[in-house]
Amino acid sequence: MQNNVDEPQGSLSAKPTMNGESLTIEQAIANLQGEDLGLRVYAAWWLGRFRVGEPGAVNLLIAALEDNADRTEAGGYPLRRNAARALGKLSDRRAVPALIRCLECSDFYVREAAAQSLEMLGDSTSIPALVDLLQNNIPGTLPAPEPPYLAQPYDAILEALGTLNATAAIALIPPFLNHAIPRIQYAAARALYQLTTDPQEASQYGNRLIDALSVDDLQLRRSALADLGAIGYLPAAEAIAETLAENSLKLIALKGLLEKQLQQTIPPNLSEGACRVIALMDELL
């Protein structure tokens, strides 16, 4: 899942200078190089959260992707995870090769973060490695440490392949429409929608996500909202507005639809679809 955060908790919402607990950029960079593992992990997260994209910070985060000092009892790499997540937000493609290597990491969550960040960086050189991972062809990768012990972060991989327009991978995706985990089914539908060129055929995948807006599980409805926003599927507009979920999430999804519409006209012209979406958004504010 992409991280559509509605209400950031606690320090997430703190601006860099708002209170004593917050860091300065210099302090965060220093902490990332320090001895204290807790501070290093926090600094890595913080640099991403506040989009500190300066080259020095990016270099340190790339180096942190190979950190061996910070290990969980189960063998995970918390610093690598946070560094990988941060690098996705910093729009610096120098991180791509190191993130691709992270797809081979034993830690499931490092691989998940790397797949998400490669998607955000939009660099198609990662496609072959993502395809290998989707096929579970990379030796030494351990499953998730919690039930259902997924072998690979399939949803993140599928979403990345869709966004990166990996048409060569399209034949590998349909089996995931029937995966036991609904979230992964949605990721597959989302990717197939993006990769299918025939609009008629693509709409069946978009409609599948619309159906998911009315499932019983609120968490899954939230997932489907995020997926529809990510693909900007206009026929979902009214269904999104009526979904039983938080307005914040519905607004983010509708914003995705609107952005897609705006790509198709030259401002200040608006498509009819854009007007429809704006009207729905106004009602949700």
Binding site: Q2, V5, L258, E259, L262
Partner: peptide, 17 residues
Amino acid sequence: LMRFTITPQAHRRSTGS
């Protein structure tokens, strides 16, 4: 009044944290 003209920049994921 139209509230939106969104440049390609907007597609950098900006709402997540």
